[in-house]
């Protein structure tokens, strides 16, 4: 009994301090699941990394619009391609420093050639890129370069209808 109590206490307190930001690590199966999502919402999937300056420039637009469109049929997923060895040292501190609260996931499969084509046949691996889709409505648009805030807003408005 005592040991159970001790175990319970250690579970409650032993995990602390939790990292302020938790981030979901994904592989190819999880990526495929996102891309095949039957959910009738407009998915806005951005591929980025902290080491990519144009990605960092456009990230606040995704953060901002993810708040604006909350509960309005748009689902933002920001897939980080930071190296798995830099998740704790670089990615999480970056998200905290920039107060990013949008849904960020990190792709841990770096055998890029095994999955890039699944995202879009035309994608050669440059980032940033953004995919907008709603499988329920057969909507699909791949944007092969960086976005301005106005352009992102325009695309969402266009494909949300």
């Amino acid at each position: 009994m005592k040991s159970l109590l001790a175990a319970t206490i250690s579970v409650i307190f032993g995990l602390a301090p939790l990292p302020a930001q938790k981030i979901e690590k994904i592989g190819v199966p999880e990526l495929e699941k996102i891309l095949a999502s039957p959910e009738n919402v407009l998915h806005v999937v951005n591929f980025w990394a902290t080491w990519c300056p144009p990605c960092v420039t456009e990230l606040p637009y995704f953060e901002k619009l993810s708040k604006e469109y909350e509960g309005k049929g748009v689902k933002f997923i920001l897939i980080s391609l930071d190296f798995p060895s830099q998740i704790d040292s670089r990615l999480i501190p970056f998200l905290e420093a920039n107060k990013i609260t949008a849904d960020v996931r990190v792709m841990t499969n770096i055998d890029y050639n095994s999955w890039i084509e699944k995202v879009d046949a035309s994608w050669q691996g440059n980032i940033p890129v953004t995919l907008l889709f709603n499988n329920a409505n057969e909507i699909r648009y791949f944007h092969p370069e960086e976005l301005e805030e106005a352009k992102l807003r325009e695309l969402i408005t266009k494909y949300l209808q």
């Binding site: 990394a49 391609l81 050639n113 890039i116 994608w123 691996g125 440059n126 980032i127 940033p128």
Partner: peptide, 9 residues
């Protein structure tokens, strides 16, 4: 031919 993540030109 292969594809890989890199910095956009």
């Amino acid at each position: 031919g292969t594809r890989a993540i890199g910095c956009t030109i």
